[in-house]
Simulated assay, not measured.
Amino acid sequence: MASDDLEPRVEALEEQVRDLTARVRATEHDAAAARVLAGGADRDVGEIRGELRDFRQATATSFNATRQDFVDLRDQLDRGFAEIRGKLDAAAAGQQQIVDLIYTVIDKPTS
């Protein structure tokens, strides 16, 4: 190996070491930034999960309340229809009495 060839080679190696050092520092900086972003994303995901859980619970509560409202409405309708049915039956019985009285008058012999 010639001594005149050694100095440019050492300078080239030193230049490569400086470049690699700069690249390592940049990579470390990028990795730190990625960790910060990942931490923020992790917090965001946690918040979204909480919001979805709250939304799911509120939706289920709302559906249960709506279902109970329908049950109550059906019970009221059933009672109302039963009441109307009773009144219609009473009216039909009254009309039947009127019909029976009319037939009694029609069938009665005149004296």
Rank of each mutant, 00 (worst) to 15 (best):
S3D: 12
S3R: 07
D4V: 08
D5T: 09
D5M: 07
D5R: 05
E7C: 05
E7A: 12
P8W: 02
V10T: 05
V10Y: 01
E11H: 09
E11L: 14
A12K: 15
E15W: 05
Q16Y: 00
Q16I: 03
V17P: 00
V17R: 10
R18M: 06
R18F: 02
R18Q: 11
D19H: 12
L20A: 15
L20V: 07
L20C: 09
T21W: 02
A22G: 07
V24R: 15
V24D: 13
V24N: 14
R25N: 15
R25Q: 15
R25S: 14
A26S: 13
T27C: 14
T27P: 00
H29N: 12
H29R: 14
D30F: 03
D30P: 00
D30Q: 15
A33N: 09
A33Y: 01
A34E: 11
A34V: 03
A34S: 08
R35M: 04
V36G: 03
L37V: 04
L37H: 07
A38M: 07
G40N: 14
G40I: 02
A41I: 06
R43M: 07
D44G: 08
D44W: 01
D44L: 09
D44H: 04
D44V: 01
V45H: 09
G46A: 13
G46F: 02
G46V: 02
G46K: 09
E47D: 15
E47Y: 06
E47T: 07
I48P: 00
I48W: 06
I48E: 04
R49T: 06
G50M: 04
E51Q: 13
E51W: 05
L52D: 06
L52W: 01
L52Q: 09
R53M: 05
F55I: 04
F55S: 09
Q57G: 03
Q57C: 02
Q57H: 07
Q57W: 04
Q57A: 14
Q57N: 08
A58S: 15
T59G: 03
A60R: 14
T61G: 10
F63Y: 07
F63A: 09
N64G: 06
N64L: 13
N64F: 05
A65H: 12
T66H: 13
R67G: 13
R67D: 15
R67P: 04
D69S: 14
F70D: 13
F70Q: 15
V71Q: 05
V71C: 03
V71R: 08
D72A: 11
R74N: 13
R74Y: 04
R74A: 14
D75W: 01
D75E: 11
Q76Y: 03
L77C: 08
D78N: 11
R79P: 00
R79Q: 11
G80L: 06
G80P: 00
G80R: 08
F81H: 13
F81M: 12
A82P: 01
A82W: 02
E83K: 04
I84Y: 06
G86W: 00
K87W: 03
A90S: 12
A91W: 04
A91S: 12
A91Q: 10
A92N: 14
A93D: 10
G94D: 08
Q95A: 11
Q96G: 04
Q96N: 10
Q97T: 06
Q97A: 10
I98D: 08
D100F: 00
D100K: 05
I102S: 03
Y103G: 05
Y103F: 10
Y103H: 12
